[in-house]
């Protein structure tokens, strides 16, 4: 398929996942903070900004860190290319450039989702019914993903979509842990619970670990679970599977090698050792590894596109040395 189309599908997947993750994170933070002190609250919101890697950019705007300011910034601020609205718009724009590759149902569900968001008064939603808004974003993203799964042929396009989607998810789960790992004391119980909620993993976690809120269990669950679809390992396995299908004749491409190493590193690690060692550094390396895979995917499959720096040549008679 066209390199540019592959890239657009990859980003459609990424942006959709980004919108969903951001909505989930905001929802959980907002509702987890109803009974906390202002200091805790500020910390929680700056954790949110850190998790989406927008802390520094937000600080440049010299705004106070409050529920309202951060939510607005992350939901609909037009200056924030990472806001939910921007992410959905970009998912749609990317999908629009590859419309002929998508099923009509997929395009329609994404398009109407975007049109609905555009048509809402998001400021009022944030003020009066944030939970409904986040629920809507989550449900719609899942709808789009579901429609995609039900209607798209398992061809190259699908693989790139899945690849973008799962790399984004793995990166996000990784960051969620990075932000929380320092708060290892048992008193941080409800932050850990929120972290699980942010990943929609609380129920699944409880079925495995019952009532334990041992940080090691949470880390193991979000990082290393082989059954929970939002764990870093699970997402990377899904991404690796997609990459494997993309490689011609079982060829071991550079992104596949990198991803394979990253995944197997996690696959065979032990959470106790991780907790005793430098978990922060470990998470940082995993996150960096995911970024490198994405960069290699771009080089391997997308970089084939021409850059737009055409120049025209004009040569005059009588120019230069003689006449």
């Amino acid at each position: 398929m066209l390199a540019r189309d592959a890239e657009s599908l990859f980003w459609t997947g990424r942006y959709l996942e980004r919108a969903e993750d951001t909505a989930r994170l905001l929802d959980v933070t907002y509702h987890g903070l109803l009974e906390t002190t202002p200091a805790e609250e500020a910390q929680a919101w700056s954790d949110v900004l850190a998790a989406v890697r927008l802390g520094r950019v937000f600080a440049e705007g010299r705004r106070p860190i409050t529920a309202a300011s951060v939510s607005e910034y992350l939901v609909f601020d037009p200056k924030n290319a990472g806001s939910i609205l921007s992410a959905v718009e970009q998912a749609r724009e990317n999908a629009r450039t590859v419309r002929e590759q998508l099923s009509t149902e997929l395009w329609e569900s994404l398009n109407s989702f975007c049109l609905e968001l555009r048509g809402r008064n998001l400021r009022a939603d944030l003020e009066f019914q944030p939970h409904e808004l986040y629920g809507l974003v989550r449900r719609q993203c899942q709808t789009v993903a579901g429609v995609a799964a039900e209607t798209m042929a398992r061809d190259e396009g699908w693989r790139f979509f899945v690849l973008g989607w799962n790399l984004e998810r793995a990166e996000m789960s990784c960051r969620l842990l990075s932000v929380r790992y320092r708060q290892l004391s048992p008193s941080a119980f409800h932050q850990w619970m929120n972290t699980l909620r942010s990943a929609s993993g609380l129920e699944a976690y409880r079925r495995t670990y019952q009532a334990s809120m041992d940080p090691a269990d949470v880390v193991e669950f979000l990082l290393l679970s082989r059954t929970f679809p939002r764990s870093v390992l699970f997402s990377l396995r899904t991404a690796e599977n997609a990459l494997g299908h993309l490689a011609l004749d079982g060829q071991l491409t550079r992104p596949l090698r990198q991803l394979g190493r990253l995944r197997s590193g996690l696959e065979f690690s032990d959470v106790r050792e991780l907790m005793q060692g430098d978990l922060g550094e470990e998470l940082r390396q995993v996150e960096e590894g995911i970024r490198q895979v994405a960069a290699s995917v771009a080089t391997q499959y997308f970089s084939n596109s021409r850059e737009f720096d055409l120049h025209s040549l004009h040569l005059l008679p009588g120019e230069g040395g003689g006449r």
């Binding site: 066209l2 540019r4 002929e100 790139f160 021409r306």
Partner: peptide, 23 residues
């Protein structure tokens, strides 16, 4: 068929090709 933009096409030795994920 593929929907291409100008930047997806290249001309080599007066032959036109499109840039795909497989070359």
């Amino acid at each position: 068929v593929e929907l291409v933009e100008g930047r997806d096409l290249v001309v080599d030795d007066h032959v036109v090709s499109m840039r795909t994920t497989q070359g």
